[in-house]
């Protein structure tokens, strides 16, 4: 099933539920790791053009810290976690217990590896929940971090989709915390590769 327009409301609701379970698990893991309450909103499933995908992530030129984790197994795809560099620093400082750590500093090796570890835990729990829910064997590859323009980052996740479609399904969940000095907001994007949807619905017993 590559024609995204053929998806019905049931399909979209199922994808929303996948986002819900994945991000819910990730939120709990993050909350435990940082020992602070973290909230998540109800996931939104959007079938959008590539340009609109960038806009949903804040605009093509917006600078964000991104974690990208590819997954393989019964189907493949990418999980992105996007957060502003300032917000990411707050997580990094909590994790390292060092208020001077910053992803934007010249000497950011420790900050980057803390951010990657965060990504490992977040996306790992996201994918674990996802594979449990649909009983599919999925495994994640080594996470990758980059801080740059959103358009440049997200387009990496669109390449596979772009060979079959001009649109992409984004399963988006926003995390937030009001327990910290500034409000923290992070975006999860699940981008299954085009062939994945057919397999997901098959596993869930939906035509």
């Amino acid at each position: 099933m590559t024609e995204l327009s053929k998806f019905s409301q049931i399909h979209l609701d199922l994808l929303k539920e996948i986002g819900n379970i994945g991000a819910g698990n990730a939120t709990t893991a993050l909350s435990n790791l940082l020992n602070t309450p973290i909230h998540m909103n109800v996931p939104v499933v959007n079938i959008v053009s590539f340009d609109d995908a960038m806009n949903l992530a804040g605009g093509a030129e917006e600078v964000q810290a991104a974690l990208l984790v590819e997954f393989e197994g019964e189907f493949s795809g990418n999980v992105f976690f996007l957060i502003s560099p300032e917000n990411a620093d707050q997580f990094v400082q909590m994790l390292t217990q060092d208020p001077n750590q910053s992803l934007l500093s010249d000497d950011n090796d420790i900050a980057i590896s803390a951010f990657l570890e965060l990504g490992n835990i977040l996306t790992g729990s996201y994918l674990r929940a996802l594979s449990d829910f649909i009983s599919a064997n999925l495994y994640q590859l080594v996470p990758n971090a980059a801080i740059d323009m959103v358009g440049a980052l997200i387009s990496q996740g669109l390449i596979e989709t772009s060979t079959v479609s001009d649109q992409v399904i984004l399963i988006e969940t926003v995390l937030s915390s009001d327990q910290l000095d500034d409000e923290i907001k992070g975006h999860f994007f699940l981008l299954p590769d085009p062939g994945a949807f057919h397999r997901i619905f098959e596993l869930l017993g939906v035509q």
Binding site: F50, D51, M54, M149, G151, A152, L153, L158, I159
Partner: peptide
């Protein structure tokens, strides 16, 4: 110009695109 798109302008217009990664 958006991603995967193209366009043409004539002087004095400028033409731009943003957020090029592997593109």
């Amino acid at each position: 110009v958006g991603i995967a798109d193209l366009n043409v302008v004539r002087q004095p217009q400028k033409i731009s695109t943003s957020g090029l990664g592997s593109c």
